[in-house]
């Protein structure tokens, strides 16, 4: 249905969404939070794409748009499935959307709050599966669940226990098992290691790397930590105020940062910090104002008058796209 790139798995085209600030009857007249202000990106098959940015920049909203948890105000989500079919998410009917969501699974940040404490692990793993057309029946599913527990490094005998019996790292493994049991093609990982201890974080990252190979997964990996993202991902998009300001292959981004915001993120890495960093408190951006110029304008040390107009997001070198009039290098 589209002229899209060949090995694309998921394409987001000029996505926009705003949320009403007031609820209820007045929502229509009220003010809005402009969360995502026109983002286009694509995930190639088998690739891990990292979205980096600080809280409120719209990275989670963008990921949720990709599974239609919200309905976008504008733009398009295109999914090119394993079977060679392409769908525009906006056209899907309820049943088709359900099917889509079993192929694109979402893992949340806080495993403690995303697992029902009153369900045992087996019920948690199969709650969604049970509703799908691929449901193989309880005895076969039980066996699949046991295999999945082993795959994520848990004891299959623990299927009858409840989330409270597990540590944070183990709960995150359960979340991963729940996502994988329906054999998805694409995984969206929303800050999956942020709430974990350092030593557990690396266990989960290594597990995801292993599973990615094993199940040939495409991944959208959301994080606020530039170091972890450049380690874990193939390509990275840096988001600020609902826009992607720079996008490059991870290794290129690690070697060279062109957008002033990417550079600020880089200089905020603890082992890189020095006295030259700004210590002055700044006014956070007001996301209730529609975005007009460069999203980073109010914080940028390199800004000029023309930055009040929106910079074009264009390819500046092979594989690197940038939206900045006055890049760092």
């Amino acid at each position: 249905m589209s002229t899209a790139c060949k090995d694309c798995h998921l394409e987001l085209k000029d996505l926009k969404i705003r949320f009403p600030l007031e609820a209820g009857l007045f929502a229509r007249y009220g003010r809005f939070v402009y969360a995502v202000n026109g983002v286009s990106l694509h995930l190639k098959r088998g690739e891990t794409y990292g979205l980096v940015g600080e809280s409120g920049c719209g990275k989670t909203t963008l990921a949720r748009l990709a599974v239609q948890m919200y309905k976008a105000d504008g733009g398009e989500v295109l999914f090119h499935g394993k079977d060679g079919e392409s769908h525009s998410l906006m056209d899907l009917k309820k049943k088709e959307l359900f099917d889509y969501r079993s192929r694109v699974k979402y893992i949340f940040q806080d495993p403690a709050r995303s697992l029902n404490p009153r369900m045992n692990i087996y019920s948690i793993l199969t709650a969604g599966y049970r509703q799908s057309s691929a449901w193989p029946g309880d005895s076969a599913a039980r066996q699949e669940a046991e295999e999945m527990m082993v795959t994520v490094g848990l004891n299959p005998e623990d299927l009858d226990r409840r989330p409270a019996d597990f540590s944070g790292g183990q709960r995150q493994r359960i979340s991963i098992a729940r996502a994988l049991i329906m054999k998805p093609e694409l995984l969206i990982c929303d800050e999956v290691v942020s709430a974990l201890d350092v030593s557990i974080q690396s266990q989960i990252l290594n597990l995801l790397l292993k599973l990615k190979d094993k199940f040939k997964l495409t991944m959208l990996f959301i994080a606020h930590d530039l170091t972890v993202t450049t380690y874990f991902c193939d390509r990275i998009g840096v988001m600020y105020r609902g826009k992607i300001v720079e996008e490059a292959p991870a290794r290129d981004l690690a070697a060279k940062r062109m957008h002033p915001y990417t550079n600020l993120l880089y200089n905020s890495i603890p082992s890189r910090m020095d006295e030259s960093l700004e210590t002055e408190g700044y006014e956070p951006f007001d996301s209730t104002q529609p975005l007009t110029g460069c999203p980073f304008y109010h914080r940028c040390s390199r800004r000029q008058e023309d930055c009040l107009k929106p910079p074009e997001f264009r390819e500046v070198e092979l594989g690197r796209r940038l939206a900045c009039f006055y890049p760092v290098t």
Binding site: S199, S202, T227, Y231, R251
Partner: peptide, 15 residues
């Protein structure tokens, strides 16, 4: 257990 900046999963192991 923390990846060093500039390392990449394709070439560096995360302990």
């Amino acid at each position: 257990a923390l990846p060093a900046f500039g390392t990449h999963y394709s070439t560096d192991e995360l302990h």
